[in-house]
């Protein structure tokens, strides 16, 4: 069974995905129509209809895609800064023993703190504007990317390092042409997790304080006692999260043709 699924074509995989989503929606619809679940939650047809309608009818000041773009732009800033910093700190920490000895204890203390725990401090430090949201997303992305880049750099094959030195590479060349490319698959795993975590954090940050974005759509739905709007926000978050993950995998497959993860 396993081997058969491994060998499944893209086409077959897509059909399986479509079937599982469709069956889930059917069960949901059925539950709403036939049981008391309908008292608490709208039917999927209503939710999808409302989501589609919100593409033209604004929720608050923006249409749904406007809110999504707001949230995405916040994630983009935090993600870019967080992943660059994460790759640099992680790889240096994994490759240079002294850097590891100094930085790792600090990092290990900060890493387990969930980004949302920083929300009150972020607001005190950066105010209610965009900077505090960038900061929170930065934290979410940074710790994941750092951790993965670090384990990647620690796992560099010493035989390859030896081979490079035998071929005449100096220390700088070993770092740029052996250590960095060796880490790329792990770095990508970190970016993948970091992006998911950043996307989750933006919603939390927007729920605390903002006047646009998918997080706002949800909190506003709660304030207005409008579960339908909440569900529209949730659908938006799920769909965008899924699209981001697919995009990341596509980029990874391009950059890591040589490795197992790229396949």
């Amino acid at each position: 069974m396993k081997t058969r699924f491994r060998g499944a074509s893209k086409y077959e995989t897509a059909i399986c995905a479509a079937i599982s989503i469709f069956v889930f929606l059917c069960l949901w619809e059925l539950a709403v129509r036939t049981t008391a679940v309908g008292l608490f939650i709208s039917s999927p047809i209503t939710v999808i209809g409302k989501t589609l309608r919100s593409i033209v009818e604004p929720l608050g000041t923006h249409t749904i895609q406007g809110h999504v773009l707001w949230s995405l732009s916040r994630v983009a800033v935090g993600f870019v800064v967080g992943s660059v910093a994460g790759v640099v700190v992680g790889v240096l920490m994994g490759w240079y023993r002294i850097f590891e000895a100094i930085v790792r204890p600090l990092f290990e203390v900060i890493r387990p703190i969930p980004p949302i725990a920083w929300i009150p401090l972020a607001i005190l430090w950066f105010g209610l504007g965009e900077s505090s949201k960038y900061f929170l997303i930065f934290l979410a992305v940074f710790s994941n990317v750092t951790m993965n880049a670090y384990s990647g750099a620690r796992a560099v094959d010493q035989t390859l390092v030896g081979a490079a030195k035998m071929l005449g590479a100096n220390n700088r060349q070993v770092f740029t042409s052996i250590v960095l490319p060796s880490c790329v698959p792990q770095i990508f795993a970190g970016l993948q997790i970091g992006l998911g975590s950043g996307w989750a954090t933006v919603v939390a940050a927007e729920m605390v304080r903002s006047s646009e974005g998918v997080g706002w759509v949800i909190t506003k739905g709660q304030d207005l006692n409008n579960p339908l709007q909440i569900l529209v926000g949730i659908v938006g978050i799920g769909v965008i999260g899924y699209i981001l993950a697919v995009l990341m995998r596509a980029i990874e497959a391009k950059l890591c043709v040589w490795s197992e993860r790229g396949k």
């Binding site: 035989t159 390859l160 081979a163 035998m166 040589w258």
Partner: peptide, 25 residues
């Protein structure tokens, strides 16, 4: 020059990239 039992080729480089690695360095 060393040729290794387990090849020790750089997996992220093509055949050309591997062979020209030394002169490039």
């Amino acid at each position: 020059g060393v040729v290794y039992q387990r090849t020790a080729l750089f997996p992220w480089l093509t055949v050309m990239g591997n062979v020209e690695y030394g002169p490039k360095c």
